[in-house]
Write a protein that binds this DNA or RNA. Sequence first.
DNA 1: TTGTTTTTACCCACTTTTCCCCACTTCACC
DNA 2: GGTGAAGTGGGGAAAAGTGGGTAAAAACAA
Lengths: 157, 157
Amino acid sequence: MPSFKGEYEHSVDAKGRVAFPAKLRKALNPDAQENFTLLRGLEPCLYLYPKDEWEQVERKLSGINSFTKQGRTVKRNFLRFAEDLSLDKQNRIPLPSHLMNWAAIDGTAIFIGSGERIEIWSPEKLEEVDSNLSFESYQDLFEQVMGDNDLEEANGG
Amino acid sequence: MPSFKGEYEHSVDAKGRVAFPAKLRKALNPDAQENFTLLRGLEPCLYLYPKDEWEQVERKLSGINSFTKQGRTVKRNFLRFAEDLSLDKQNRIPLPSHLMNWAAIDGTAIFIGSGERIEIWSPEKLEEVDSNLSFESYQDLFEQVMGDNDLEEANGG
DNA sequence: TTGTTTTTACCCACTTTTCCCCACTTCACC
DNA sequence: GGTGAAGTGGGGAAAAGTGGGTAAAAACAA
């Protein structure tokens, strides 16, 4: 299982291309190589999954029945904003314009390694969420999540 | 198993032809190649199944008991408005006028990859259902797919 | 059946986008 | 400082998307 970490800022060129950080590339599972799925995240940022990790998600999706109303809605709106893509020969990612617009990315993108996936932010949006999180409240949060309470049990394993 | 994803907008010409998005074409199973079944969807949109996936649907349909009134009704009305078709040499789909009319498609069509099938929407109709989709409800969706709860079980396998 | 009209599908031409390649600059490490 | 990898930018070939003409096929009427 890959584990992405670190923060990397790169410029996005006129064609919507961003260099994929070398350190993250080294953390990739070789057999997922260069293939990703990019989609809208839960904050105004994008999530980038390497192929092998995305397959876990697909497995979950394939268990959803497309003939129920809820199933249809979930699948449509989840997959709608997702795209498969891969690195070019210069190890760059082409960002689809609709995803760039949605995440307000323009000129600069920040990659954040976040375990099994990578988040891509615009500097402005990242600043915003950062300014809403003081160091003290981060400490509290950290304690709640990482503290003594048994996470495996609380999260169903 | 193909998994269609992403949203693609294309223009429909005077002859009712739409380009089939290249990214969706790449997701096609090679042996289903270029053969589809198009039919009325459960929302005001069209469902497009590649041949191989359609066969699964047929299998499911054949399991329906035709000697119940409900079974007959479902079978009849599901298949009634379905048509087989294939791409032309320019990778375009010819949309039958009765299906275009029913889905209120005229001038522009939006393809939405939705797992094992593709939905085709008119911009207006899509706008309508979208107005019910807030960012919060997208977050809910996300949780349903990615969350810890066991989907296979919740949907009966 | 025959002739007429409509439909269908293939072909060609053009525009736009995408992707690949080459070149230059910057940075990190020796 | 030298060397190689990483990051950045642009030009050109190929593919995708769009529109229209024409001929074969199908539908219809006389």
